[in-house]
Write a protein that binds this DNA or RNA. Structure first.
Lengths: 186, 186
DNA sequence: CCTGTTGGTCAACGCTTGTTGGCAACTGTA
DNA sequence: TACAGTTGCCAACAAGCGTTGACCAACAGG
């Protein structure tokens, strides 16, 4: 079991092409043939290395949100920091847009998305919201606003949402997220 | 040009089946054959009456949000009323879920969604936000929160979002929408 | 030098898709 | 009754899909 195989470059190329295709086309329209063409490789290699299309998608959709530790931050800025972080992460590449697109079209994609948010956003909220038992609900509220902005801005591309600057978005959404995290339940 | 044709029932059956399929499967996976099977009809009839798949989708996605007149309402309740109305509309049938699903996967779907919100949510905001020139931006913010909740609750089905009651959602999102509509720009 | 493993290509398979055109049955009109 | 238009079904098409298995080239160890 060698630590690095000759085929690692090929595997990586496939994975990168797969991420881009899934991101821009969604699960159904991202064909194995197109991915293979992008990676300059035969479609059958994709099958060999990832078993089938679902396996390829599973491998291509391991995503790190890379959320910061919020514990050390001034409590009243958490919302803005979180919104800013997500916006930056969203604009860095198309991975999250793709995740969103696939999460909507594909059952496995939706499950993957549930897991990502539960595992990575859940703990963050647990540390800052008043009643830890309510953390999942707070996380869902935060997710609804952040994913909603991502949806309107990066996927549906409603013009006013596209035209806003990231600073403006942070200024508008920051207080919302802040409230979802730290306010008493209404 | 008769006012009613014998085939009107067929056309309606096709349209209804199409709406359901587009809603539950998205654009790509909703096949003409499956729609025809649901409507107990030959696939070629779909082509005859709607030209092609895009035409069928266009016909199936004419949607009325049916937003209420907000002008006569107490200004401080607008947010809650709007959120409640959308939730009710969303849970009544699967049409809006379908619109969302198709808007994400399909360019024409996204365009349709832009139009719906511009034409139906835009005027509402224009009447209530401080500076009418900012109405489109306010509408986009409102859309981001409302579509975000719909996304997490009805499409991705994040468990905490599903488990909340509509009253709880109104209580949480109402003030957010209210602020997006009526607060001074931050 | 042989031999087995690995990386990669090629051609094909069975299937589903959107779409088309021909043909039968019915309806309304003259 | 005869005829034109409408409604519907059937069979087929070309294209694209995921997937498979046979085959070749390079390389490794003995």
């Amino acid at each position: 079991m060698p630590t690095s195989r000759r085929s690692d470059a090929t595997r990586a190329a496939i994975l990168e092409a797969a991420r881009e295709r899934f991101a821009s086309d969604g699960y159904e329209r991202a064909t194995i043939r197109a991915i293979a063409r992008d990676a300059d490789i035969d479609p059958s290699m994709v099958m060999r290395y990832y078993g089938n299309k679902e396996g390829l998608f599973a491998a291509a959709s391991e995503i790190e949100l890379g959320l910061p530790e919020l514990g050390s931050l001034p409590a009243q800025h958490i919302g803005a920091v979180l919104v800013g972080h997500f916006l930056e992460r969203w604009e860095r590449d198309e991975v999250l847009t793709g995740m969103l697109r696939v999460g909507v079209t594909n059952e496995a994609g939706a499950a993957r998305m549930q897991a990502i948010f539960a595992q990575q956003l859940g703990p963050v909220t647990r540390g800052v919201c008043p009643d830890p038992a309510e953390a999942p609900r707070r996380a869902a509220l935060v997710a609804s606003q952040i994913l909603g902005m991502a949806l309107t801005r990066y996927v549906l591309r409603l013009p006013p949402a596209v035209e806003m600057s990231t600073d403006e978005i942070v200024a508008w959404l920051g207080p919302t997220v802040q409230r979802y995290l730290t306010a008493e339940a209404p």
